[in-house]
């Protein structure tokens, strides 16, 4: 310790500060910009693996009653069978409309819950795990048993 100069002492202080910063930087997650196409591509691959199909405009109108002016892009993936509730809906929106779209997604989940309440135990379990989340200008409605894991994986992957 005797050999330590003042310069080295400063260096140690700087090193300690840098160390603290290195630990903290990854914790402070920046508000990153997610691209709609990227998220869609990600969920498209998941949907293909799970043999889900792209839903058409009539499905959108029936299940997500939204004014077309309120979103720029939309893609919905679901199963053919009416008894399977797994579904991914991806909306590209303006910030101003984000809240409205999120409400519609929540309503969709509530509507499904109402239709399966009382008899569809597995469907209800899946619906309980559904998530609606905003990623910048993208709103995601993920209905699936592994909704949370899927979103986490997507955050890591993109």
């Amino acid at each position: 310790m005797k050999q330590m100069t003042r310069k080295e002492l400063y260096m140690i202080i700087v090193l300690v500060f840098i160390s603290i910063a290195i630990v903290i930087f990854p914790v402070i997650k920046a508000q990153r910009i997610y691209e709609y196409e990227e998220i869609d591509r990600y969920f498209q691959s998941i949907a293909t693996q799970r043999e889900m199909e792209k839903k058409d405009a009539s499905f959108l109108r029936r299940c997500y009653p939204i004014n077309p002016n309120e979103y720029q892009n939309v893609q919905i993936y679901g199963h053919k069978g009416a008894m399977e509730v797994e579904e991914f809906a991806i909306f590209q929106v303006d910030y101003a409309n984000a809240e409205a779209i999120m409400q519609v997604c929540e309503k969709r989940i509530s509507a499904l819950k109402q239709s399966f309440a009382g008899y569809g135990t597995t469907q209800m379990e899946t619906l309980e795990k559904a998530l609606v989340k905003q990623y910048g200008i993208v709103i995601l409605c993920v209905i699936g048993n592994d909704a949370e894991a899927l979103l986490k994986e997507m955050e890591n992957a993109l």
């Binding site: 090193l15 840098i18 910063a21 997650k29």
Partner: peptide, 17 residues
């Protein structure tokens, strides 16, 4: 992830010092 730039810069400084 723009925050990664700060993380990597921190690592560079740490390595050098």
């Amino acid at each position: 992830e723009p925050m990664n730039v700060l993380y990597l810069s921190g690592l560079i400084l740490y390595a050098y010092l």
